[in-house]
């Protein structure tokens, strides 16, 4: 039996919509599952106190600090490098051998698994350069890891700035650098910000790479040379050790809320970007 074109379209669309609905269902399930089990245990004490007896009791304050330190450092190092790379690729050079090599490097870097970044960060930063398992090692490793994302999003944002803006600026007797700094970057800033926020989200979620570079010390870090356990790693350890599930769920809920918040922020920035570039 052959289905008529219209009938086969109906069938195909039904199947694909079902799969799409299932995907949305999975997302909703994951988020609600974690929030429902975790949020009730997220109290002020939990957020503001140090863990006791390996995380069975107490809170996650040192891990919050550690996560912010490691991720923040990664993004702070990566953002200027990534934006400068994007400026070079878009404003200071033409398509050619050089840009092909740079893009290939960035694209490949984007595909390298986090465990490889972890191995590298361990031998290079922690052992080779003597930084030890520390916020510094972790931050530098993450910086390398999120660099391709920042390059790509910045490049897109910069390319979206109308060419005519540059012409006007040149026509008014401004140098290329002034034009880049005061016209192009100013217009591209929300778009670049979106990339940076998303990179921050990725660094916060990262586990394998920070495990091998920032270590898992539970104390409140005193300097960049201290080891510090991040939230994601803390959650992994709690979940694996089967320590009280309430603490694990609460930690996961904090992670999910942070992820949702950062995505919302990125969305807001993107909207502003499009409004500006109308």
């Amino acid at each position: 039996m052959r289905l008529s074109p219209a009938a086969s379209q109906r069938a195909a669309v039904a199947v694909m919509w079902t799969m799409t609905a299932a995907t949305i269902g999975v997302l909703a399930f994951v988020i609600l599952y974690v929030l429902a089990r975790g949020l009730p245990h997220v109290t002020w004490e939990f957020l503001s106190r140090a863990p006791e007896s390996m995380g069975r009791r107490g809170g996650i304050f040192p891990m919050i600090v550690g996560t912010l330190a490691v991720s923040g450092m990664g993004v702070l190092i990566s953002a200027p490098i990534g934006v400068a790379t994007a400026i070079y690729l878009t404003e200071y050079t033409r398509k050619g051998m050089l840009t092909t090599i740079i893009r290939f490097g960035a694209d490949c870097l984007a595909g390298i698994p986090s465990i490889i970044f972890g191995l590298f960060g361990f031998v290079f930063f922690a052992v080779g350069l003597g930084m030890g398992l520390s916020i510094l090692s972790g931050g530098l490793t993450l910086a390398l890891m999120v660099l391709p994302t920042i390059i790509r999003t910045s490049e897109e944002a910069i390319r979206a700035v109308p060419q005519s803006f540059r012409e006007v600026s040149f026509g008014l007797g401004c140098t290329r650098w002034q034009t880049v700094l005061f016209v192009v970057l100013r217009s591209a800033l929300p778009g670049i910000g979106t990339g940076i926020v998303l990179s921050l989200g990725r660094s916060i979620s990262e586990t394998a790479a920070v495990m091998l570079t920032a270590g898992s010390a539970m104390g409140l870090p005193q300097s960049l040379f201290d080891s510090s356990r991040t939230l994601a790693l803390h959650f992994y350890i709690l979940a694996r050790e089967g320590l009280p599930m309430s603490k694990a769920y609460a930690t996961a809920a904090v992670l999910i809320v942070a992820m949702l918040g950062l995505n919302l922020l990125a969305y807001g920035l993107m909207k502003r970007f499009h409004a500006k570039a109308r």
């Binding site: 005519s164 006007v168 026509g171 008014l172 007797g173 005061f182």
Partner: peptide, 27 residues
């Protein structure tokens, strides 16, 4: 750069930079 300040150009399509009127002129 100085040359372009001495020769002012106006384009076919008005391209105000996406800022305030004042900033456009003082830029």
């Amino acid at each position: 750069v100085a040359l372009r300040r001495r020769i002012g150009m106006v384009y076919a399509v008005p391209v105000p930079l996406p800022w305030s009127i004042r900033e456009n002129i003082t830029y």
